[in-house]
Simulated assay, not measured.
Amino acid sequence: MRKRSIKNTRVSTEVQRELSNIIRGGIKDPRVAPWTSVVTAEVAPDLKTCKAYISVLGDAHEQEETIKGLQSAEGYIRRELARTLNLRNTPEIRFVLDQSIEYGVNMSKKIDEVTKGLKSEGDADAE
């Protein structure tokens, strides 16, 4: 199966959806932050491995602890995936911290600061 095939895309989407459901409702580990989301899941073409990109709302310590908690619960998560998805092989999951949402929020704040500065200078010029 090719990496960009329709089947691989569908499997990746289903894995992402089920991972988010399991993380939201099934994990009782206190290290996992309540504002944890699965940004995307990339399943390998042979369906043996999966990279799950995780976004955590919080500071660096909370992000690190959430990844550790998810790695320790990997067996449970994989078992739940096997139970809910009808796949021949349940992929091994690697959790990767995704900083893109945090980066976007920071850039948006910086843009707002710059535009606010431009508006105040424009108001001073108008007077």
Rank of each mutant, 00 (worst) to 15 (best):
108 S>L: 15
41 A>Y: 04
86 N>W: 12
113 E>G: 12
75 G>T: 11
39 V>Y: 00
64 E>G: 05
64 E>I: 03
91 P>R: 02
17 R>L: 10
29 D>V: 00
114 V>R: 05
41 A>V: 10
15 V>A: 12
87 L>C: 15
51 K>W: 06
36 T>M: 08
14 E>L: 11
38 V>E: 04
18 E>Q: 10
13 T>Q: 05
91 P>I: 04
79 R>A: 08
54 I>H: 01
73 A>E: 02
5 S>T: 08
76 Y>S: 11
8 N>V: 02
72 S>M: 08
64 E>F: 02
3 K>T: 01
106 N>A: 15
77 I>D: 02
47 L>M: 04
24 R>C: 09
24 R>Q: 10
22 I>A: 12
66 T>M: 13
71 Q>E: 14
16 Q>Y: 00
65 E>P: 00
42 E>W: 07
111 I>K: 14
22 I>F: 05
70 L>M: 06
25 G>I: 05
114 V>N: 02
82 A>F: 01
10 R>F: 04
60 A>I: 09
46 D>Q: 05
48 K>F: 06
24 R>N: 08
13 T>S: 09
40 T>M: 03
3 K>N: 07
32 V>A: 14
70 L>W: 03
104 G>L: 10
79 R>L: 05
127 E>P: 06
109 K>Y: 06
98 D>V: 03
118 L>Y: 00
25 G>M: 06
33 A>R: 11
22 I>T: 03
74 E>P: 00
32 V>R: 07
102 E>Q: 13
83 R>D: 01
83 R>Y: 00
49 T>N: 13
91 P>E: 09
38 V>C: 04
2 R>F: 05
54 I>F: 04
88 R>F: 12
60 A>T: 04
113 E>M: 11
89 N>F: 10
41 A>Q: 09
25 G>F: 11
69 G>R: 00
118 L>N: 00
31 R>M: 06
33 A>P: 01
110 K>R: 14
6 I>S: 09
60 A>S: 10
20 S>D: 12
50 C>I: 01
43 V>W: 12
108 S>T: 13
86 N>I: 03
52 A>L: 08
100 S>I: 04
127 E>R: 08
88 R>Q: 14
48 K>A: 09
36 T>W: 03
38 V>R: 01
54 I>K: 01
57 L>H: 06
12 S>F: 02
102 E>G: 14
69 G>S: 02
15 V>P: 00
46 D>E: 05
71 Q>S: 07
98 D>E: 11
7 K>E: 05
112 D>G: 13
55 S>Q: 04
82 A>D: 05
56 V>R: 05
120 S>F: 08
49 T>R: 15
59 D>G: 15
